[in-house]
Design a protein around this nucleic acid. Structure first.
Lengths: 100, 100
DNA sequence: CATTTTAACTTTGTATCGCAAAGTACTTTT
DNA sequence: AAAAGTACTTTGCGATACAAAGTTAAAATG
């Protein structure tokens, strides 16, 4: 397989996880509600896709209380940032190869 | 969902189909063997992913004999080229938004 | 002529995925 | 006490991905 394809990260082949990482890479803290609204996901779907990113070590969870309400925020890890940036670089490379 | 994500084409969310379209968009004729070798696919996997692209009208099949051997080549359609270029444009847009 | 090979599939079986809906736990608001 | 909010987990089901094996038809080989 050509290198620019093997470089793609399997975990980012999902529209939902791509969207999550896109939010997390530009904003250091994103909470459950923001992600849910922005990506229009059900609670369960959000949780399971986010769990996949956590499992890879790409995302960290922070649980806190805001006032009296529980609040879950997510943050990208250094590893996650690196992996995502590399994935985007591979995409860019593919695009370059196709219409330089 | 943010627009740059809804614009993604579901059929191109697969590494294999992305690879196929990448080959087809730069080379007008690509045959079964070339694709198989380039993407390292089993016959069956190749055929079924290609069938998905055909079903969308993105790819055309051309069967012929080269000498005495049967030969199947694939070619991108105008529709396929358009869809793929739009998909790449959405990816590019995402990348731009993330690190302009 | 019979067997094997080649090309390109199709079928089958299995494992994984994606998603909605429902259920859970704990707390707060009413 | 009951209802609602937050963040899940579980369940169930249809779709997907893949390898492996089976199929078809012609060609090459013995």
């Amino acid at each position: 397989m050509s290198s620019y394809l093997t470089d793609f990260n399997k975990v980012f082949e999902s529209r939902v996880r791509l969207g999550m990482m896109s939010l997390l890479v530009v904003q250091e803290q994103v909470d459950f509600g923001q992600i849910k609204e922005n990506l229009q996901l059900s609670d369960g779907n959000l949780a399971s896709h986010m769990a996949a990113l956590e499992k890879m070590g790409y995302v960290e969870v922070r649980k806190q209380f805001i006032g009296k309400k529980p609040n879950t925020t997510y943050a990208i890890t250094a590893l996650g940032r690196q992996a995502f940036v590399e994935h985007l670089a591979s995409l860019e490379k593919l695009i370059q190869q196709i219409h330089p």
